[in-house]
Amino acid sequence: MNVSVKRMRAIFIKDYKEFSRNYAISTMVLMPLVLALFYQNAGAASLDLYFLPVNMTFAFVTTFIQACLIAEEKESNTLRSLMMSPASMADILIGKSTLVFSITIVIVTLTIMILGFTPANLFILAAGLTISTVFYIGLGIICGLFTKTVMEASVAILPVMAIFSLGPLAMGLAETYSVLEVLKWLPSSQLIMLEGYSAAGNITDIIISLAVIAGWTVITLVIASMLFKKRLKDE
């Protein structure tokens, strides 16, 4: 597979310009920041509440924008020309993800700063957040490939938000309904627990948490690239 920085950069620049001029999508990045302000004023205390805006950011910014970028490409029928061009699948996917990756990192950092949250171990949290970002980008690609228009993409992220962003909250009910114990293995729950473990300084638990998140990420990326290949053939 030949990877060309020049082609990835071309896709990145094009996406950036399209994104910044499409206010329906680009104003979405403000949402988590507003949410963070609310929580900060309400005085969030528990880890669960600190991480709710962060997990929301992943659904509303990372997955949503990534899905829109892919769906838009399908809507205007340009996916086929991308396939015909010398750009390889890696070029297209990496080029298309770089923009969302950088936006997510900025927004998540800002959210955490607004919340006034001080991580127990900055390095471990950063690692967890970075791997999570890649996971949600993969989800976004899958959502984008299943939808045809930007409008459909905005509906497709709702289940992502319900399961991954709100899932950790439902864990509180796990004592009543033991089925809900599974929710513990969601990457978003693991992210919260990771922070808890790193505060406690428990190395084994930290590694297990990171491994779970990484596992989700790898599976998602494999599914996303398989779907992408299949879609290109169908076009």
Binding site: I11, I13, S76, R80, S85, P86
Partner: peptide, 28 residues
Amino acid sequence: GYLHFNNDGLALRLTVEETFRYHKDLSG
């Protein structure tokens, strides 16, 4: 082969120059 239809596959929010630059970089 490559099928071409009119008015197909353009990124509407780019300017003409940006469109050319994008495809030039992409095609080499």
